[in-house]
Amino acid sequence: MIEQIVFYCFAAMLIFSAGMVVSMRNPVVSVLFLVLSFFSCAAIWLLLQAEFLAIVLILVYVGAVMVLFLFVVMMLDINMTVLREGFVKFLPVGIGVAVLMLISMGLIVGSSQFDIAAVASVAQHDPGYSNTKELGLALYTNYLYPFEIAGIILLVAIIAAISLTMRKPRTHKTPKPEKQVSVKRKDRVRLVKMKAEKE
């Protein structure tokens, strides 16, 4: 009973904050609402006894990704009024398409296909059960091959990002300190002997 109440609270919070993410005028506020939605999501994971995923969601997404996101949003100074131009003009079409999609998907997915009875309930484990250990075992045995490929994808992402953003060393003239220090007097000053000239 109490579990259900907690679930509905967090579910409502998730939907509310997700809605706020797309409707807020200020992008910084949007990002903060996104953080809130990740938190509610993590809480729902916890209800499913998937504590590892819940913690990772908070550590990785909220702790690392969202902070980076916030930095980018703050630095970029996006003019939202320009982005929102034509919003009202396309609104009727957008709503039409969305409603159509919703109805057609509701007819298919919402039917008895995903009935509670049809889906096996979540397995209950005793308190000593370690989610992390099970995930680790699965990742490094049955799913080793996909796991390695995912690693390679990340490597490619790094290579792509660096090769697309790194410019060649600048070609304009900058003083090179190491050369400035090692300069000897004879490199720069040339004594020229000449006869004294009479007035």
Partner: peptide
């Protein structure tokens, strides 16, 4: 899916 992403990501770059 992972193979496809590996291919696509390289091609985008």
């Amino acid at each position: 899916y992972l193979g496809l992403e590996l291919l696509s990501l390289s091609l985008y770059a």
